[in-house]
């Protein structure tokens, strides 16, 4: 009898105590700085989020951020390594032979350029931003940008033409 009374009172006391402890935690958190970044008011592409009035612990986009792919056709040697590396085949390259020039490579070595891309399409709607295409590129022509806003009303606009095909009908160019 005494034992069960003790347990009864203990249950009530323990429940009340733990509930109060929990309430204390949430009350403390009520006055903490929220972690939310108010996108798009706070531009996370910028280095300093504090300039936008953000006080939380999160940081801006890092240097290695994998946003949309970007291609510089001027230094592209059309070696097709990125096209072969892509697991989902969202890159399409067509090239023509040109006179040999040399280009400064990613690792400092000179790279010969004998081909120039006449067509360099990337389907950003298919791309899964894995980065396998960026790694083998000898010249750094294909790289990640910090852009990530890709909402669009038509799928075709997600096919980006980094090198415009000349003489090809535009409609064909959009199909990968």
């Amino acid at each position: 009898m005494v034992q069960s009374m003790k347990r009864y009172v203990g249950n009530v006391g323990n429940t009340t105590l733990t509930v109060l402890k929990g309430l204390r935690v949430t009350l403390i958190n009520l006055f903490r700085t929220p972690i939310t970044i108010q996108y798009p008011e706070v531009d996370i592409r910028q280095k300093d989020l504090k300039a936008f009035g953000y006080k939380g612990p999160l940081g801006p986009l890092p240097d290695r951020f994998r946003g949309f792919l970007h291609v510089n056709p001027e230094i592209c040697i059309a070696c097709d390594l990125c096209m072969k590396a892509c697991p989902i085949d969202c890159i399409r390259i067509e090239s023509t032979k040109i006179d040999k020039t040399t280009i400064q490579g990613k690792d400092g070595k000179a790279v010969n350029k004998v081909k120039h891309p006449v067509r360099f399409d990337i389907h950003l709607g298919k791309c899964m931003y894995c980065g396998l295409c960026v790694e083998p590129c000898p010249t750094g022509a294909i790289s990640f940008s910090k852009e990530f806003e890709g909402a669009t009303s038509t799928l075709n606009t997600l096919v980006v033409h980094f090198a415009e095909p000349k003489g090809l009908p535009v409609r064909e160019a959009t199909i990968l």
Binding site: T26, N29, L30, P34, I35, T36, Q38
Partner: peptide, 10 residues
């Protein structure tokens, strides 16, 4: 609002 601020949100 209360829920938001208690949960580190806005």
């Amino acid at each position: 609002k209360v829920a938001g601020h208690m949960q580190a949100r806005l």
